[in-house]
Design a protein around this nucleic acid. Structure first.
Lengths: 225, 225
DNA sequence: GCCAGTTTGTTCTCACGTTCACAAACTTTT
DNA sequence: AAAAGTTTGTGAACGTGAGAACAAACTGGC
């Protein structure tokens, strides 16, 4: 903790905005594919499922890419957001844990088409090392370090059982990975400088259950997210 | 939009707190399994990966379940949180779309053990109707209405391709489902009173990519979530 | 060239969420 | 029984996010 390291940089995009940029990007891709050349903040906001004031404010953090009285050029804005997120070039990704979920992730076409390339599938179980999933063959977990350094991997995905997740994370960090997407239902402890995002299926259901329970208690009351 | 329907109820738990309750619950289950009878807010906070002041404030919305100078009774607090979330009894759930991801979800043991029961797997493709996944057989999507009404299903999971998701959601809502967990990369439009939560794999990766890109630009600076 | 219409970018205000700090309430020791 | 030590529950300060509202900047018609 050297000092207040922040705020030297002009562009400080709020976290809430960063989380929405990929949604806008997807909406823009859809519009572009439909042949739309220009769109207003109102249209794009509708496509992204947010309110237009919020959309305009979010976009204003990136710069002034719209034209007053006209709207946004779809392809131009699409490129600017992709550049800001950093998905104009591909990110190599390793997936560890090739169970049911790992299979699904390896086969998910949305990764490839959105700036990510699965360069390796790793599993500790030797029985799986013969398998080929989505055109990539499953390799021993011990190959991690080699793959990470050779391919310059910065992002790792953990799809192992909960008990193994922390060990996998430790090895990933030691190997040089600095961003982890964790599907295992565990809290990961990582050093400063390493980002972790978690996706927890049962937590999402539990949140729904909470609201569902309340709906049935009193008059219906939705929290349409 | 009839009126400001809120605030008639005493217990109004903030959304941010609701999202963390399942995390606390999981930590408590782990502690309980390890034989721990009592824990302080500091310990539980560490296990849940949050700061202890936040934990205490979150718990205070539920009531006063701790003892000053002592801490929390693990099993008692566990029950109270489970009751508040509504997972003391099982919720029947239907999963629509039995592709790779649907398979993974159907096999996910974390649902069953955390208050959810997969009562049906539905898919529009007749080729899949012979399959049995995780002990449940795959049935035609058209059986939705019957299953929902017979089993009293309130929660639906969408694991279809993006193009089908909105149609599935519409059918679910019409059949009486009022909470949807959406894995398809689309913005769903639903009536008031229906909750939607979305899990988007590629968006999570894109958020990581954004931070990763900034790390390599300047001095390392983590946003350890 | 001016005026009416449109749409962005931004300011202001309010609500929500986080963290600190401490009094209240309990246990243990003397 | 009083004092010293713990730990919760909460009030108050601070920071972040959301939405309304409007000025600034553009287009197109006359």
């Amino acid at each position: 903790m050297t000092a207040k390291a922040s705020s030297e940089n002009a562009r400080d995009i709020p976290e809430a905005t960063v989380a929405r940029l990929p949604v806008y990007l997807r909406a823009l891709v859809t519009l572009s594919d439909a042949g739309t050349g220009t769109c207003s903040s109102e249209e794009l906001a509708a496509a992204a499922g947010v309110n237009s004031a919020k959309l305009r404010k979010d976009l204003s953090y990136l710069g002034s890419y719209g034209t007053r009285g006209v709207g946004y050029d779809v392809d131009y804005l699409r490129y600017q957001i992709a550049r800001e997120i950093g998905v104009t070039q591909d990110w190599p990704v390793v997936i560890v844990g090739i169970g049911n979920l790992g299979h699904a992730l390896a086969n998910y076409s949305g990764f490839r088409s959105r700036g990510f390339r699965v360069v390796a599938l790793l599993d500790a179980d030797p029985e799986r090392h013969q398998e080929v999933v989505a055109g990539v063959d499953v390799r021993p977990f011990d190959d991690l370090e080699q793959i990470v350094s050779e391919q310059g991997v910065a992002i790792g995905v953990i799809a192992t059982p909960a008990v193994a997740a922390q060990d996998v994370a430790d090895r990933m960090v030691a190997a040089g990975i600095s961003s982890i997407l964790n599907f295992a239902p565990t809290v990961l402890v990582v050093p400063d400088g390493v980002d972790v995002r978690k996706v927890d299926l049962s937590i999402e259901l539990q949140i729904l259950a909470y609201h569902e329970q309340r709906k049935s208690q009193f008059g219906a009351q939705g929290v349409t997210a």
